[in-house]
């Protein structure tokens, strides 16, 4: 394998991997913070791409501004979804409702939400496939290595988002509170905190991450109502492989999937995807909690 090919494959792997990292960090924050397995996460990613299209392509705003606003907008959407759907559902629960029943019902509600958002986008925006002209269309071509600048920008931006998220979760009392709530909401309640708004914030933050993932990849992919469908399944796999509740695991899992898809296809051809699923099964057999998840310890 030539150096050029290797670098190209690596950049592709990191691009796709970092999108999955953002997606799965969002899924994980929502799952641990609010105990909702959000199947509509892929549709939030799709909405992120549409909002990015609106701000950047239609209104011609600055790229970074558009991206930041996309994150905010999806955070808001997430908040409304939580208040409108999941909080309403949670109000139906009594103290005797079992945990698994709560998890099941909220997951079912998210499946319904998935279809509503999907069909709503279809009805609202039509099926026309849209593209976003990349703000950095240049191709870096030196020493025989060709790399798209846009893809490098995506990797960098994802890294920045991950660092910001790390600071939020570990260096602020809000982050500490979110972690505490995800560990034991009742104990936090007994410390006099109204955990409801922490749940809302967790859901909004997770949704914002999905929106950022969709918005940031939109200039590389196309914007279609169906784009959220496939990404959710691989994201759930990454969540399982990386381990629920482990940031290191999520990042490792996302990048691993990126590497497998990119190099696997080059070396193995069409069976690469099959290989990914087999790997997931193997990992789950030997490490049921994922590579670095809580249950693994």
């Amino acid at each position: 394998m030539s150096l050029s090919l290797f670098v190209q494959l690596l950049v592709n792997a990191l691009t796709i991997g970092s999108i999955y990292v953002l997606m799965v960090l969002g899924l994980d924050i929502i799952l641990r913070g609010t105990k909702i397995l959000n199947f509509a996460h892929g549709q939030l990613y799709m909405l992120g791409a549409y909002v990015m299209f609106l701000f950047f392509q239609a209104l011609h705003w600055n790229f970074l501004l558009s991206l930041a606003l996309t994150g905010l907008a999806l955070g808001l959407v997430g908040m409304l979804i939580y208040l409108g759907v999941f909080a309403t559902l949670a109000r139906r629960f009594t103290p005797t409702t079992t945990f698994s029943y709560r998890l099941l019902l909220s997951a079912m509600a998210s499946v319904g939400l998935m279809m509503i958002l999907q069909q709503g986008t279809l009805l609202g925006f039509g099926t026309q496939e849209r593209g976003i002209q990349p703000p950095f269309p240049q191709i870096i071509d030196s020493f025989g290595v060709r790399v798209s600048l846009m893809r490098l920008a995506i990797i960098l931006a994802s890294l920045v988002i991950c660092v910001l998220l790390y600071l939020l979760m570990n260096k602020t009392s809000l982050g500490r509170l979110m972690r505490a709530v995800s560990y034991d909401p009742e104990a936090v309640t007994l410390q006099g905190v109204n955990t409801f708004w922490v749940f809302v914030f967790c859901f909004a933050l997770g949704s914002a991450l999905a929106g950022l993932a969709g918005g940031i990849i939109a200039p590389v992919f196309s914007v279609t109502p169906a784009m959220g469908q496939d990404v959710i399944f691989l994201s759930l796999l990454v969540l399982l492989v990386g381990g629920i509740g482990s940031y290191r695991g999520t990042i490792a899992g996302g990048l691993l999937i990126g590497l497998l898809l990119s190099f696997g296809f080059q070396l193995l051809g069409g069976v690469a995807e099959l290989f990914v699923f087999m790997l997931v099964i193997v990992i789950l057999i030997f490490k049921p909690g994922g590579m670095l998840g809580e249950a693994a310890e």
């Binding site: 090919l5 190209q8 494959l9 592709n12 691009t15 796709i16 893809r151 590389v220 992919f221 196309s222 169906a226 784009m227 469908q229 496939d230 898809l261 990119s262 296809f265 080059q266 051809g269 069409g270 995807e273």
Partner: peptide, 16 residues
Amino acid sequence: VYYPRPTQDFAPFATK
């Protein structure tokens, strides 16, 4: 070279 129909990331296929 075959790709799944809903593919959005064609980079691996193009590289191949």
